[in-house]
Amino acid sequence: MSLLELQGVGARYGPVKVLHEVSLAVGEGELVAVLGANGAGKTTTLRAVSGTVRRSGDVIFEGQKLPRRPEATARAGIAHVPEGRGTFNELSVLENLRLGAYVRRGKVKADAERVFDFFPRLDERRNQQAGTLSGGEQQMLALGRAMMARPKLLLLDEPSLGLAPLIVKGIFDSLERMKQKEGMSILVVEQNANLALAHAARAYVLEVGRVVVAGTSDELRANESVRKSYLGY
């Protein structure tokens, strides 16, 4: 059974319909990528899952219909690293991490240290205000905060945005480890399609709000139009 299932999900911003009947699934312990051009509806797909945009259709999580309330989504075990990061800029790095654990109990200190192991840069800046971090460091903080929730499903909106190539590699390696060690499932929107497909089991390609291609990473890499548009070879 899939951990997450979207069944005919639509979404709109005012009069502009941006998602049309999107259906997709993420299995337990699976990393699934969503690819697509700017404006294809990738970010909105993640927002539809976390309930941060009005949606139609059904979102099923662990066999249950998920209510369209972000706080219910978070409590159900879904953490969303949004576009634009959404870090609390007046709070310190450590306080931001603690907030990530707000919906659960226990081991908060140890988990914060785990995040600092992942991102030594954040450790050096643990008492600094988040607003004074560089853009890339804020991205690390947003990821770390989501890890603090120990989610069953992680929704990641362009984790590579603003990060140096070496760090991006490190992040995907870390995601792979979290997936294997903790059985976490991950739905990731990523522009670096080569990297995403190297780590994802399966992927969906969105165009103008619709799923136009779906398959395993190998199938997508063998698809001529996907190669040309998203992989560049």
């Binding site: 576009e83 945005l161 522009q191 992989l231």
Partner: peptide, 13 residues
């Protein structure tokens, strides 16, 4: 400052 953010491969090209 990071003009390619949010763009796919062929858009970056």
């Amino acid at each position: 400052d990071e003009p390619a953010g949010g763009l796919s491969h062929d858009e970056v090209e």
